[in-house]
Design a protein around this nucleic acid. Structure first.
Length: 289
DNA sequence: CTAGGATCCTGTCAGC
DNA sequence: TGCTGACAGGATCCTA
């Protein structure tokens, strides 16, 4: 679920809600969702910094320990105090009473407020690490730079290591570029006029550049949107954040018309994932000069 | 090393 | 109504 922009929205929200708060207790409702060091080492600690790397959220504690959260497909973070801040996988958890049926872990702070980690499918986790554990974490160690932290040449070189792969699978690979998920992969390909099932070896340098720019653009717009409309996340009907409604050109728009050319947006399966595209703006056999 | 498919888990929805 | 299979905003593990 949450891709880089959603996790960044969570980071910014938590920066306002829980920074410098002291954790009174940690309650683990699903053992599988907690990894790493014992929760007793976390209790009593103050949260002194909140960072993000790709889709991973990092919270630093005053005793040099870290909490790394990965929301995977269905994770959510929900802060409940005087106001509620919720972001991540959009479902009823945004509004229902906490802890809810999908709450796996929650924190109580010394001021009586709470932070809930909800995760329907239990793929996500919160992992407690010391400095060494953080430095040696395989996911973080192998994570590629973010779209803004690599130039066109580096992106091109990274793509070339997967000549025979399908481009969508390659940009979903966090070792190639960090933070891209199923929504922004489809949206980025649309902006580049590139069919998501195209093999890397058939893509020109120019199209690759456009793809990198497209990914940056859709993600930046989403971050800006989430940041400015965080209250949208607490609408009474629990509807999702604003990106899909406002900006999606193809994602989940199958059956609707392309805003550029009027063709019907199609849905298919590429790299094992549901994939949305405009058959006219993103032609399959595009010959790329 | 790369490429592709299965797998983890719960819930919802379409189609009998 | 009840069942069944497909699918879901992710990443890893296993195989070739």
């Amino acid at each position: 679920m949450p891709e880089l922009p959603e996790v960044e929205t969570i980071r910014r929200g938590l920066d306002k809600c829980i920074l410098n708060k002291r954790i009174k207790s940690v309650t683990i409702l699903c053992e599988k969702s907690w990894r790493g060091l014992d929760k007793a080492l976390i209790e009593g600690q103050k949260i002194i910094e909140i960072d993000r790397r790709g889709k991973a959220l990092l919270m630093q504690l005053e005793n040099e320990l870290w909490l790394m959260t990965h929301l995977r497909m269905t994770g959510q973070m929900i802060f409940v105090g005087d106001e509620r801040f919720a972001a991540g996988h959009p479902d009823g958890g945004f509004t229902e009473k906490m802890p809810g049926r999908h709450t796996r872990i929650y924190f109580e702070f010394t001021d009586g407020t709470h932070l809930y980690f909800n995760d329907q499918r239990k793929f996500g986790f919160i992992k407690a690490l010391d400095e060494l554990g953080l430095a040696e974490d395989e996911f973080l160690k192998r994570l590629a730079p973010e779209p803004w932290d690599m130039n066109e040449e580096e992106f091109w070189q990274r793509l070339q290591r997967h000549q025979n792969s399908i481009i969508k699978a390659v940009i979903l690979d966090q070792h190639v570029i960090a933070g891209v998920g199923n929504i922004y992969a489809d949206e980025g390909c649309y902006l580049a006029g590139l069919y998501p099932g195209t093999r890397v070896k058939a893509i020109s340098r120019e199209t690759a550049d456009e793809l990198l720019h497209g990914l940056r653009e859709v993600m930046q717009r989403s971050i800006d949107s989430g940041g400015s409309t965080m209250k949208d996340y607490v609408r009474a009907d629990g509807t999702r954040g604003s990106y899909l409604e406002k900006f999606a050109q193809v994602f989940r728009r199958d059956g609707e018309v392309c805003r550029k050319c009027g063709s019907e947006i199609l849905k298919t399966r590429v790299a094992g994932r549901g994939t949305h595209y405009c058959p006219k703006c993103q032609p399959k056999g595009k010959v790329d000069a």
